[in-house]
Design a protein around this nucleic acid. Structure first.
Lengths: 368, 368
DNA sequence: ACCCCTTGTGCAACTAGTTGCATAAAGACG
DNA sequence: CGTCTTTATGCAACTAGTTGCACAAGGGGT
């Protein structure tokens, strides 16, 4: 066995032979303890010796083995992000790319890694956390899509695994919660915007009711509207899928008192909604105004450009990373997320003055 | 220090106190070696003893520490995926979500994890691989976006890190390459489709020329067209960004001999192109036919629905994972990727009402 | 000149599993 | 009943760093 290992190393030329701390110590003429102290800025080492050790390490291309360090310190410098993927929805949802971008921006400079996992449902997700904790693979986890009676916060607390929950900050949650303050502000602003444009028949296409963030936004929608003395034209729940967004839109357009404006729980659904409306022969925004949520990049380039709510997913991701790192004992300056979701007005919303025209039920092209 | 550790464990109640192999051995009344053998199905252990050990482990909720196992075996069961993010393009590109889905489907059942990193450019990417290799953090890496004179394959080979390169399979590449066979087939099919519809002035909006896959597709486009005796109306290079797609489209629409069809290097750009065309007052497909590439979910729901090329990113991701796992010594059945990219005809392409210049060489229906 | 204090360095034990080798126990056979 | 197999089990060393503690060396004060 030793023989095969040796030959594998030889074949790897320079890079294959990983130097150990002993090689560095020998090269610098010190003990391995000195090398360790030089790298961790602990203990008492003369600056000259430190330099000599660091030079020797650089010469050999040595970095401390993450595995050995993790074993000794019981800290892996790795965080978990588990994405639930009900029915391949992730593939369509660029939301997560933004979140990951925000997380990585904080993790990378501190040498942390992000371990990404995909699961089918909550049960699988819980089992995964149990395994990750039992194997000691990660130092903490980012939880997305908080839901009512979410089993994950108590589970992770029981496992001794630090976690942050993305969503509306909530003081007595079992784990810290990170999110823009005043979550409802964007919806509030959007409703105001539509009403100023003259809309009174406004519908809302929501996500699954058990997810807290989408439930909250839907509640704010209804509340804001009623404060102005107007009843919601309709409120529909979906599973966030494109197909459901199209189905919901078709249902709304088939109403006798058709809404003049529709707000969607995310941009992906809003884009599908616009497509469905156009297919039904309606013009956006002339016949129907549409508002999205997320401010995905693509919304700026569609025709019409999408009016949406910017919730700065990247910044929330960065804040989540900082909160989690702080729980893991890293020295992270706390930066307050004092912003709030903001409406971005573009072209998919416009004034309504006409009584709703009847729907032309002639599809332009009768294809799939 | 021991005191503080003990108190931390006590405070963690049940889950906080990670059991060790010793605890399991004691509970089962055997040595730690027996526990190890029971879990790894090695050595010679009676089935009864094995059962007793496994039960004890389940009772205590013990799994072997990934860190300790990794230290001993020099295998972390973790693979790296590094995404280059020129200017926040990732956020817009659901392509990666699909790839990750495909990778995870193979990794998760084998207990492997995916370490995701984002970098700004090739230099940063190379430095990252060097660090990951030096620290022994991963067993291998998935490389995307092969480019001409790509520095990464030789680098990773030098570092002794297994890797797979996504793209056209290429026998004498320094690292194994994974991709659908006959990469050009989809483009070929798309050009045929457009010519059957009567298009003769067809333009191509490509990605950066140094990326092999987009360069190859562009070459196939030009070649296919010329084989039919038609010159490309225009071929433009972009950086894959939405802004560049819009700019390219506007340039094409401003030509005196405006193209009647445009093919884009990916769906995101095609969607932006449709938006730009509509904004310029053109109808798609009546005035301009558009073809994308990738078959992203959203393309099915736009108006018009997007005609595109399906290259089955998920399946390629799964194949890449298998190839990499095989290199890492896992016993993975080799599944051939014998498929090829295929055209998906939807609504964004249609017959051109403009007079088509007569074809000189081959008839439009005489295709492969 | 002696002692003390400060500073630098190394030994050895520790992290949590894995594994080669020795040995013990049990059954088979002469 | 003793010896030979066969099979099961445990000891101890090993993976690559980290760290408490002991000790050595140098400088300053009395």
């Amino acid at each position: 066995m030793n023989g095969s290992e040796a030959s594998r190393r030889d074949s790897g030329r320079d890079g294959g032979a990983r130097p150990t701390i002993k090689a560095v110590a020998a090269a610098a003429g010190v003990s391995t303890a000195a090398v360790s102290q030089a790298f961790n800025a602990k203990g008492r080492i003369s600056e000259a010796t430190r330099r000599r050790i660091l030079d020797a390490a650089a010469e050999l291309g040595w970095s401390p083995s993450a595995t050995a360090t993790a074993l000794r310190s019981a800290r892996t410098r790795t965080l978990a992000l588990v994405v639930r993927r009900p029915t391949d929805v992730l593939g369509a949802d660029p939301h997560f790319s933004e979140l990951i971008t925000g997380l990585e921006g904080e993790l990378a400079p501190r040498g942390y890694g992000l371990l990404l996992h995909l699961v089918a449902d909550v049960a699988e997700e819980s089992a995964l956390y149990e395994r990750l904790a039992a194997e000691g693979r990660v130092d903490g986890a980012v939880l997305t899509d908080a839901r009512a009676d979410d089993p994950r916060p108590p589970l992770l607390r029981g496992l001794g695994l630090p976690a942050v929950l993305l969503g509306a900050p909530h003081p007595d949650a079992p784990v810290p919660t990170v999110g823009l303050g005043n979550q409802g502000a964007g919806i509030h602003e959007a409703v105001d915007h539509l009403m100023e444009l003259g809309h009174r028949r406004i519908a809302y296409v929501s996500g699954p009711g058990e997810l807290l963030h989408t439930g909250l936004r839907r509640a704010v929608f209804e509340e804001t509207l009623r404060l102005k003395g107007v009843e919601p034209a309709a409120v529909l729940s979906t599973d966030f899928s494109e197909a459901a967004a199209v189905a919901a839109t078709e249902e709304l357009l088939g109403m006798t008192e058709r809404p003049t404006a529709v707000m969607y729980a995310n941009d992906s659904m809003a884009v599908c909604g616009i497509g469905a409306a156009q297919r039904a022969g309606l013009r956006v925004p002339d016949d129907l105004s549409v508002v999205g949520y997320d401010n995905l990049p693509i919304g700026r380039w569609l025709h019409p450009r999408l009016t949406t709510v910017d919730q700065q997913v990247q910044r929330v991701g960065a804040a989540a990373a900082r909160a989690l790192l702080a729980q893991c004992g890293e020295d992270v300056p706390h930066v307050a997320l004092d912003d709030r979701p903001r409406l971005v007005v573009r072209e998919s919303t416009g004034p309504t003055d006409r009584p709703a025209p009847p729907i032309t039920s002639s599809p332009p092209y009768g294809k799939t």
